[in-house]
């Protein structure tokens, strides 16, 4: 049986939009190896860099926030980003768990 796990990030996005914030939606679209969050996991980011939800176990969120702010600044509607296996510098960017993920960023407007 499957549970319809819904972390209600889209519901939160609606509230953020109602509060006149710019919102970028980040969705995990592909994973390889042992990635911390499954495909469909979501996170939202506003123009101030506040975020809610997750696309990894905390490994790449900082970079995703930066990318999303860049998207807003450049007024780009969407972008795909990928994170590969990290080395020891897991503090920087990458997945310490050895997985790989692709994330789709899109503005909600």
């Amino acid at each position: 049986m499957k549970n319809s796990f819904d972390e209600k990030i889209l519901d939160e996005a609606k509230d953020w939009l109602a509060a006149k914030q710019n919102v970028v939606l980040a969705t995990v679209i592909q994973t390889w190896g042992s990635s911390p969050r499954p495909v469909g996991s979501r996170m939202i980011i506003n123009g101030k860099g506040d975020f809610s939800g997750s696309v990894s176990g905390g490994c790449v969120e900082t970079t995703v926030v930066r990318e999303c702010l860049g998207l807003l600044k450049e007024k780009k509607p969407f972008k795909k980003i990928e994170f590969k296996v990290s080395n020891e510098s897991a503090w920087e960017v990458g997945l310490a768990c050895g997985g790989e993920i692709a994330i789709f960023l899109e503005q909600i407007n």
Binding site: D11, A13, K14, I108, N109
Partner: peptide
């Protein structure tokens, strides 16, 4: 994603 679509999803 369009705002209208988000509304429809919810």
């Amino acid at each position: 994603m369009k705002k209208q679509l988000l509304k429809e999803i919810i």
